[in-house]
Amino acid sequence: MIEVKEISKNYGRKKILKGVSFTANKGEITCLIGINGVGKTTILNAIMALTPINQGQILMNGEPINEQSFEKITFIPDAITMLPSMKIEDALGFMNDFYACWNQERATELLAFFKLNKEERISSLSKGNTAKVNLLLGLALDVDYVLMDEPFSGIDIFSREEIANVFTSHLIENRGVIITTHEISDIEHLIDKVVLLDDGKVTKEFNAEEAREDEGKSVVDVMREVYRR
């Protein structure tokens, strides 16, 4: 379980996060929703110790996150994390060199799944294919938790469908996934848990299926209620 406990973050005088708390379970897809600039990316960065927080605590399975945790948790940011001059296979080689949890078989499978040519240079990839390589780099790690920042934004509809397919495939199975988005409708049926963010705080944390079952409300219905207040 990932526990985010009362984290606060200031940029200068601006308070971007004001005590955010939520949990994300293994085997579930947790979705952080909020308008742009609400600090979704900052939360993911903070979980990975890529930016300091002013207050609060982040735990994975009860332990603070350190370098060793990166064999158990990974993050797929919205930009690719490899050098443009690298070929796809160089990037895979780099991952293989440094991560014990790198799964080359799965990487090969993902290359086929996304129809990528490993000879191609990252700098020459289309936007959609760059996003796919980026996703591949994270998903071919045998980690328990995967964080994804806006995996669907800014790419064409076909790439989006392919990426959505990943979420329902064995590639995600049994992992804990946290994704951020400002556009829910594509993935409403894919997610387990919804964490709504507004003004630096969590305004509601709920299970999507329970909201439908207990209250007959869609995720968007709940969002409308929360954000209208």
Binding site: M48, T74, A79, T81, F94, I122
Partner: peptide
């Protein structure tokens, strides 16, 4: 391409 993400996540 923000390679620093990768370096810091090693």
């Amino acid at each position: 391409n923000t390679f620093i993400y990768r370096l810091l996540m090693l």
